[in-house]
């Protein structure tokens, strides 16, 4: 038994170290000028471009736009997906399989294909190059993840709890806020996290629908990766990672604050 626990700890922490160690790579690359084989550390460090990159007004614009897009996408995705996932998770009805497949479709079709077609219609209705247009296309690609996560949460939760509360005389609003929401909250957080992450890392869709009017962090970052400018690419990557992490930590903290009791006492 003791031995088993050690293996568990070993597996888990090996994985954790493997997850984090690439960050060290990025930090080193961000500061290295020359790093010839076989040196384990860069033979020449530099911080030349660092200040210029970090202080540029474009970066501030990009971070703000990225965060705004990701937040709006998260809200839009949850609003759309919550009822549908509840339907698919709790009820058996004709078309349930079709719904599940439809919600999974955006993951299966290469993003550029759909976005190019969508761009045509967005131009026609005047949504191309607008924040709303970009949020819509980000939401399309966040739906599959959020839908699956929430659907399983509802499946596991089952219908009984809501029904019991209703039988005890709770109104629909009361049932929702006192029973449903606390029960699905961990799932909601996971779904929100995925939606946020999907939106935050979108490149090609922001590109096509935003048409360059909306500047996001990936739009700054990707050209440097493609151009082999590891310096700038690493700096922007670090900005990207830490902004996203900070936003997610904040999100979880807010949720915990509001649902402290139910979330921890009734896991």
């Amino acid at each position: 038994m003791k031995w088993g626990r050690d293996v568990v700890q070993l597996v888990m922490w090996t994985a954790a170290v493997a997850c984090v160690s690439p960050l060290l790579s990025l930090i080193m690359l961000a500061f290295s000028a020359q790093w010839p084989f076989p040196h384990l550390l860069p033979s020449l460090f530099t911080a030349d471009h660092l200040a210029k990159l970090l202080l540029s007004p474009r970066l501030v614009e990009a971070v703000t736009t990225s965060l705004a897009l990701a937040l709006l996408t998260t809200v839009a995705t949850l609003l759309l997906v919550f009822p549908a996932a509840k339907a698919a998770g709790l009820y058996r009805f004709r078309g349930r399989e079709a719904l599940k497949l439809l919600a999974l479709m955006p993951v299966m079709v290469p993003a550029a294909t759909v976005t190019m077609g969508l761009h045509y219609f967005m131009i026609r209705v005047g949504l191309a190059g607008t924040m709303l247009g970009v949020v819509i296309v980000h939401t399309v690609f966040a739906v599959p993840y959020a839908f699956r996560i929430l659907m399983y949460v509802f499946e596991i939760m089952g219908e009984q709890q809501e029904e019991q509360a209703a039988m005890l005389g709770a109104g629909p609003l009361m049932v929702f806020s006192a029973v449903t929401l606390p029960l699905v909250m961990p799932g909601m957080v996971a779904a929100a996290t995925m939606s946020f992450v999907i939106s935050f890392s979108q490149y090609i869709t922001t590109f096509i629908i935003g048409g360059g009017r909306l500047l996001t962090v990936p739009l700054l970052l990707v050209p440097h990766v493609q151009g082999g400018e590891l310096h700038a690419a690493s700096v922007y990557s670090l900005v990207f990672i830490f902004t996203a992490l900070a936003a997610l930590v904040l999100l979880r903290a807010v949720v915990r604050h509001y649902y402290r009791e139910t979330y921890f006492l009734n896991p």
């Binding site: 995925m194 890392s201 990766v225 690419a233 990207f240 992490l245």
Partner: peptide, 11 residues
């Protein structure tokens, strides 16, 4: 685990 999940593929 969130770190690899948020890291873009290109990076």
């Amino acid at each position: 685990l969130q770190l690899p999940v948020i890291m873009p593929h290109l990076v």
